Simulated assay, not measured.
Amino acid sequence: MKLRCIAVDDEKFALDLLADNISQIPYLELIATCKNALEAAVVLRREKIDLLFIDIQMPGLSGLQFVRSLLPKPLIIFITAYENFALDAFNADAIDYLVKPVTSERFLQATNKALLFSSYHNPINIHREADFIFVNVEYNIVKIVLSEVLYIEGAKDYIKIQLQQNRTMLTKVTMKSMEELLPAAKFIRIHRSYIVNIAAIEVIKKDSIMLTGNRIELPVSDGYKGNISYLTGR
């Protein structure tokens, strides 16, 4: 599955950079680039668009005004040089708000969120249960199949994704961002530094859990014991 998207920005350099970022994401298909909202409106009437990347401050109709006028709306990600429009953007049903300059990690985080939103809201989407995500690993964008993940460990600015068969991947993203990407029905936070695949849990102890396979034991901190209680119904 690919998300069909358009990019809208009145600055050519910013538009070219956005198009290049989109081209590097395997699940995005760039249908058109537009210099203003009116050009974007023409494309939206002509094409089925899943995701709209749009600037806010543009001549004529602003990005916010344009998005508010859309019914129905595609998924919306605002990309702007201004921080002070974030509340207005989310009130206009944006799924994310990126402030220029945008790092590749932050861009990937936003597009992963779009993929998940699309998965959950499209009843004919074969990936509706969010069975994979994409992450940056050593300057490559790598697909991670969620059923192969045992646990995720936070380490300063990076996280370690521990997979089956003793495979490990490191990616530069925060634990909070990763937790938001993962489906809550499949993953649970047990510690400030650990998120685990519920299907991999074999034994639940008072202050730790044991995972299947090579019998990995991970701590459960007091602040997250409520998650375990919810899981066990106790």
Rank of each mutant, 00 (worst) to 15 (best):
R189S: 04
K176E: 07
A200T: 04
I190G: 09
I195N: 06
I198E: 10
M178Q: 10
K176W: 00
I195D: 06
E180C: 01
Y194A: 04
K206W: 04
H191Q: 09
V203W: 12
E202P: 04
K206A: 15
H191C: 08
E202R: 15
L181T: 04
E180K: 11
L182W: 07
I198T: 09
V196A: 12
E179L: 12
A184W: 00
V203H: 15
I201L: 08
K176S: 11
L181P: 02
I201V: 14
K186Q: 14
P183C: 10
I195G: 08
R189A: 02
P183E: 06
R189M: 02
I195F: 07
L181H: 08
S193Y: 00
K205E: 15
I190H: 11
S193W: 02
I190R: 07
P183H: 06
E180Y: 00
A200I: 02
R189G: 03
F187Q: 05
I201Y: 05
I190D: 06
Y194E: 02
A184T: 09
A185V: 01
V196E: 04
A199L: 06
V203S: 12
F187C: 08
Y194K: 03
E180G: 03
I188Q: 10
H191W: 07
A199V: 02
R189I: 01
K205Y: 15
K205A: 15
A200Y: 03
Y194H: 12
N197H: 10
S177G: 05
I198A: 11
L181A: 11
L181W: 07
A200G: 03
I190T: 11
S177E: 11
R192G: 02
I195Q: 04
I188E: 09
S177R: 05
R189T: 01
N197D: 05
P183I: 08
A200P: 01
A199P: 01
R192L: 00
R189C: 02
P183W: 06
S193L: 01
N197G: 12
S193M: 02
A200M: 11
D207A: 14
E179S: 13
H191S: 10
D207W: 09
K205H: 15
I204T: 14
A185S: 13
E179N: 12
L182K: 06
A184S: 14
V203E: 14
I190P: 05
K186M: 07
P183Q: 07
M178L: 13
S177M: 03
H191I: 09
L181G: 02
R192E: 05
A200D: 03
I190L: 12
K206L: 13
S177N: 12
I195M: 09
Y194T: 02
A200Q: 09
R192Q: 12
S193A: 13
E179M: 11
K206V: 14
E202M: 14
H191G: 08
A184H: 10
E180P: 00
I201Q: 07
E180T: 05
K176Y: 01
R189E: 01
